[in-house]
């Protein structure tokens, strides 16, 4: 085997090249550039406190985008538009179960995760059993959930976060870092391990890259795909739980603002919408870049039109870099 491999220095150079062009590296470089730009325009933009608060917002986006990443890697036009609805629903349920008491946190967490998973699995079953396109199925699910929420709440905000949950989101836990960032790190580790170091992960990439090959190799693409939607629902549920802690109480449409950014974070993170390639590290970079970009645009007070232009240009530059990278890989 060693005889067929290129020389060691070439291998190292190649690995370094791959690292330099990894979506995470690119996205973080973009985030740093944006921070520097923000600091130049409005001093204090890149202060440690500001960075932590931006990362907290990115953590919420990153959690939803974890599920989105799984679903998109699984292929067959996999996409989950129902994450917004699930966030709203789970934030509502968690807030009402908790009603401001710390003692109810474990129950509320378990209930939100289970509920999110159930809704996601329902999406998955509709998609694989009834062959409903993911776009349509999850959009329909969003309508059902949001409608039900309006009926349940009569449009009035309800439920309250427990103090401990609010502290997890807003108070430093260790060395000035809030608990939510540690939680994000744990989730990131878990998702990366799942994708890269388990048989399940190998199957997920296989069904995304070529479902027929996966089927002939004895995998069950439908079952895995349904499960991926379940997991996406679960991550959205977790996000809803944390959003409750972040905002304190819940209004009906609170989750909808996460739908589009969760998809954009995955795409600028280098995961192909066609399925089969990508990973969660890139998505983390995407979530951070997107968050910094958004707060920069707010700081700049660029006005809606100016924001659109800058937002679009950043996306295009990143996507161009990925195009180049794919060329190098080919």
């Amino acid at each position: 085997m060693s005889a067929q491999n290129p020389s060691a220095s070439a291998a190292v150079r190649r690995r370094l090249g791959a690292l330099a062009l990894h979506p995470l590296t690119l996205a973080l470089a973009a985030a740093v550039a944006l921070l520097a730009l923000g600091e130049a325009i409005s001093p204090g933009f890149a202060s440690p406190g500001q960075i932590v608060s931006q990362l907290t917002i990115a953590a919420l986006l990153g959690m939803v985008a974890a599920g989105q990443t799984l679903v998109i890697i699984g292929g067959r036009e996999g996409i989950d538009l129902s994450v917004g609805g699930v966030i709203s629903l789970c934030a509502f349920v968690a807030g009402n179960l908790m009603a401001g008491t710390d003692a109810a946190i474990p129950l509320a967490l378990a209930a939100t995760l289970a509920l999110g998973f159930a809704v996601g699995l329902l999406n998955g079953l509709g998609i694989v059993l009834l062959r409903i396109p993911p776009l349509v199925m999850t959009l329909g699910m969003t309508g059902v959930i949001q409608g039900a929420l309006v009926i349940l709440t009569r449009g009035v905000p309800s439920g309250r976060s427990a103090p401990a949950l609010t502290a997890l989101m807003n108070q430093p836990l260790v060395a000035g870092i809030p608990g939510v960032l540690l939680l994000w790190a744990a989730v990131a580790l878990g998702v990366c391990l799942l994708l890269h170091n388990t048989a399940f992960g190998v199957r997920v990439y296989a069904i995304g890259a070529n479902p027929e090959v996966a089927r002939i190799a004895g995998m069950r693409p439908e079952r895995i795909r349904a499960l991926l939607f379940g997991l996406s629902g679960m991550f959205a549920g977790l996000t809803g739980f944390l959003v409750l802690g972040y905002t304190g109480s819940v209004f009906v449409g609170i989750g909808l603002q996460y739908v589009l950014p969760s998809i954009v974070a995955v795409v600028i993170g280098g995961t192909s919408l066609a399925g089969g390639i990508g990973g969660y590290l890139g998505t983390i970079g995407g979530a951070i870049t997107l968050t910094v970009l958004q707060s920069l645009l707010i700081t700049l007070d660029a006005g809606p039109a100016g924001r659109q232009v800058i937002f679009g240009l950043t996306l295009l530059v990143l996507l161009l870099l990925y195009g180049r990278q794919r060329g190098l890989r080919g």
């Binding site: 992960g201 190998v202 027929e212």
Partner: peptide
């Protein structure tokens, strides 16, 4: 159509049969 997932690494493509035949949770590369 039936043989390889072109975008995936050689290692994974080689391991698809093992993954099915042996099951198991971990995939220590």
């Amino acid at each position: 159509r039936d043989g390889v997932a072109l975008l995936r690494p050689i290692l994974e493509n080689l391991a698809y049969g093992l993954v099915t035949r042996e099951g198991g949770v971990a995939f220590p590369r």
